[in-house]
Design a protein around this nucleic acid. Sequence first.
DNA 1: CTGAAAGCGCTTACAG
DNA 2: CTGAAAGCGCTTACAG
Lengths: 357, 357
Amino acid sequence: MKKTRNTETSGVREIARRANVSIATVDRVIHNRTGVSVKTKKIIEEIIRELDYQPNILASRLASRKILRFAVLIPHTSEESDYWEAPLEGIEQAEAELKQFGVRVGKFFFDQNDKASFIKQSRLILKDKVDGVLLAPFFVEESIVFTDACRKSNIPFVFINSDIPNQESLCYFGPNLFKSGYLGGHLIHYGVGEESKILIINVSREIKNYNHNRLLRKEEGLRAYFENNRKRNPIIKLDITMTDNRSIYKYLSNIFKVHPDIKAIFVTNSRVGSVAHYLEKAGKKNIFMVGYDFLNDNIGFLEKGTIDFLICHKPKEQGNRGIMSLYQSIVLGASIDKVYFMPIDIVSKENYAFYRN
Amino acid sequence: MKKTRNTETSGVREIARRANVSIATVDRVIHNRTGVSVKTKKIIEEIIRELDYQPNILASRLASRKILRFAVLIPHTSEESDYWEAPLEGIEQAEAELKQFGVRVGKFFFDQNDKASFIKQSRLILKDKVDGVLLAPFFVEESIVFTDACRKSNIPFVFINSDIPNQESLCYFGPNLFKSGYLGGHLIHYGVGEESKILIINVSREIKNYNHNRLLRKEEGLRAYFENNRKRNPIIKLDITMTDNRSIYKYLSNIFKVHPDIKAIFVTNSRVGSVAHYLEKAGKKNIFMVGYDFLNDNIGFLEKGTIDFLICHKPKEQGNRGIMSLYQSIVLGASIDKVYFMPIDIVSKENYAFYRN
DNA sequence: CTGAAAGCGCTTACAG
DNA sequence: CTGAAAGCGCTTACAG
């Protein structure tokens, strides 16, 4: 027998010695490959249990030159919002970290306003025969079709940003939107008096798609806060479906004509910056504003005091954790929590400099 | 030449081939070891640059059975506060992650109120001849003595929780305390009216130690907020140096006799829970409370509404990042940012369930 | 100052 | 169904 320095005496070699087989056979059992007699398999499994064998990932990844290929399906950034830059950064950070472990990540981008682009990209992924998928399931039915196909091919997939329950994803990383809106209610309640009029704004091109539904969950959360705490603030809402800045101005100047007494505004997504921009132009001061997402635009308004609080759900971390969980599950065989709700972070003028998205 | 599957053709073998030397010599140059002629060294270094050689960490850690030993020097948890459980958790998480990379972490605990215990533990570490140190420099002079000794022995060290600038630490992970207090000012300003009386409480046994100085930085931050924003709230302060709950009660009932009109309290550390406990017992309602740290006790009061906001600086992450940065610097030769200010997180009743410490 | 060789703990063809 | 052997890309004694 070769001299070996494995002081732990619990590697494949030791298992093989005890089972009176070769390490190749041990390897087959460890990886659940075929070609081992039931009897031999049982013996080896027993020894593995006895020794509490932990494979050496270093050696495993080094010896196996198999490349793991992941695919990512997320919206591309648009002029309207660069929100999706953050998840992409997190994904690329994970990619860099896992590169030396033999992981490659292919990126597929779709247009949030174009269902067809989503379908097209998802088909490209299926052709690609990847080992794992990370996606933002913007179009629910199409996402179900896609992930059903993944499941048939035994490709694990992870949702970020929004979840589709019961779709047997490996896991979900994203916010609890209702609670997030609920927190928004609290912040606004601190900011304005008991009777002040509050305006909720949803900026979303289509009013019946999944994205809009996400905004509604936040709206419900906010309303629930005021109901549960028996506040009598009048709450009005505005759906903005033309999402360029010029149209937003029109919507806003109209509503301020009807409701000049609005004291607080809750914008249910990152477009809070556009609303803030209007308020500045229109010379409206002392309106308490809460909105979403750590974008440069929004931070500028936070700094100036036009926006009071931004709520954020760590989009970068969502992307990062999404990729890492695929790796941990596939390579390390770790079990992953089905749902991981991201923190609901409160960003203000005083702490934004220290915030990590 | 042996058949090799290194498709990247940029390992030590390729470098050796081009330089017409053995891989052992290449290894010597890569690790800056002695015993290589200047000429050979230059040739090899040039080739390394040309190929943009990136060592394979997997192979490196696998082949080198050298164990890296880190030491951690932090306070043990006391009955008064289990704050230090969190950094320890982060440290142990990093340890688990790095175990397979040959990293071991020795833990040394001292008593926050006993300088001698700090000195004793730090000496034990020096005897231990470790490869890196993570410490919370509670006693400044003693920490300087200790880290001076580390530097002499070429042992890199990382500060968490509080910093000692110019001590040439590898890096620091902790809060910007002034900004943290400043944010506390903002939160209190939201919570109470313009003229309401505000009470600042520092709970700390000694009034001239580093820990107390930390609290003062937060106090300064809070005061600065009100000054910069020209608020006229009367601000009073209370130093509590007997830190058991019974004594705290006495201090508080005394100050409420003198100042029955206190509308908001800012407690500069995790002892906010003890203050909340008093308020409940004393039947004081409608006092706006902001304090520190995500401890079970405090969260209970947050839940009940006695505490309005907790500010947190991710203590677990401090411990985790501290260890990881030692590893990244020593093993991967990565360059580390000198100062990494932790986020200043705002935790409330609505978002605490999603907070990660 | 330098190199040949064994080894880290796995995986992967290949042969039987 | 099973095993011997080469190899992953480094590091480490050891010999000269």
